[in-house]
């Protein structure tokens, strides 16, 4: 099913609310309220893939936190501190990942409409497209290494520095190539042109955007009111 993206302005507002919420709260466990709001927000956008992956991760965290707090679980390889840290940061992860996976056309149209300087728009778009691009590049580097029999455990353990070099050098060279290709593409599409850019994908605000703008505002305010604020 196709995602029904909310407007970029609402996504940015949701991110700001989540950051304010987790930064100011004095009750870190209660951040589940913001996470639940985040899951509902993903469900409204029919973003099932993100909903499932974050949902499974969050349930796992909840189970760990329950065992730590009520059954004195002490893990040998992962501190309780980090479990709560991930729990606390989950609302930001959910909302930020939803923003990052927004189609670049919608993002640039919005940023251009609010007169954001071109270098910042370009920088943000490159950052947001980084993860899918790098995933593909890393896969191709590992495939090449496997062809040359450089991924065997013995080889990696006996020559860790060389193995690091085999990964990092082609990856960096590819990064530079991508940067060049993106620059040419951006210039060809008028990145240096000072006017306001439009987009085929730019969308107007509708009632759903208004509703989620209000929900995030009220939800964060209520969360801070109930959970308390640390200054």
């Amino acid at each position: 099913m196709q995602c029904k993206n909310l407007a970029v302005a609402v996504k940015l507002w949701a991110l700001l609310c989540a950051i304010i919420g987790i930064s100011l709260t004095s009750d870190t466990v209660l951040t589940c309220v913001l996470s639940v709001l985040g899951f509902a927000y993903l469900a409204t956008q029919k973003n099932r893939r993100l909903l499932c992956s974050f949902g499974i991760f969050y349930i796992f965290l909840a189970a760990l936190l329950y065992l730590i707090r009520f059954h004195n679980l002490h893990m040998v390889i992962f501190s309780e501190f980090y479990v709560l840290m991930f729990w606390n940061l989950s609302p930001v992860f959910i909302v930020a990942w939803d923003l990052i996976t927004t189609p670049p056309g919608e993002l640039s149209a919005f940023l251009s409409r609010i007169h954001m300087p071109t270098p910042i728009i370009l920088g943000l778009l490159v950052m947001f497209r980084f993860f899918p691009t790098m995933k593909a590049e890393l896969k191709s580097v590992v495939r090449s290494m496997r062809n040359r029999r450089l991924t065997a455990l013995g080889q990696v353990l006996c020559h860790p520095a060389a193995s690091c070099e085999y990964v990092i050098v082609p990856l960096l060279l590819r990064c530079l190539q991508i940067a060049d290709q993106l620059s040419v593409s951006a210039l060809a599409r008028g990145a240096d042109y000072p006017g306001v850019r439009g987009s085929y994908y730019g969308k107007a605000l509708d009632w759903r955007d208004g509703l989620w703008f209000t929900l995030w505002t009220v939800g964060t305010a209520a969360f801070l009111l109930v959970g308390g604020v640390r200054l």
Binding site: P119, G123, V126, F130, M134, A179, S183, A186
Partner: peptide
């Protein structure tokens, strides 16, 4: 434009390496 894109791309790579190393070390 090329400078902006190169800086953005390599900065995210730096931050990604930092986060991955930190997460692995959390064990």
């Amino acid at each position: 434009v090329r400078d902006v894109i190169t800086t953005a791309l390599l900065t995210v790579l730096l931050i990604a390496i930092q986060l991955v190393v930190n997460m692995v070390c959390m064990a």
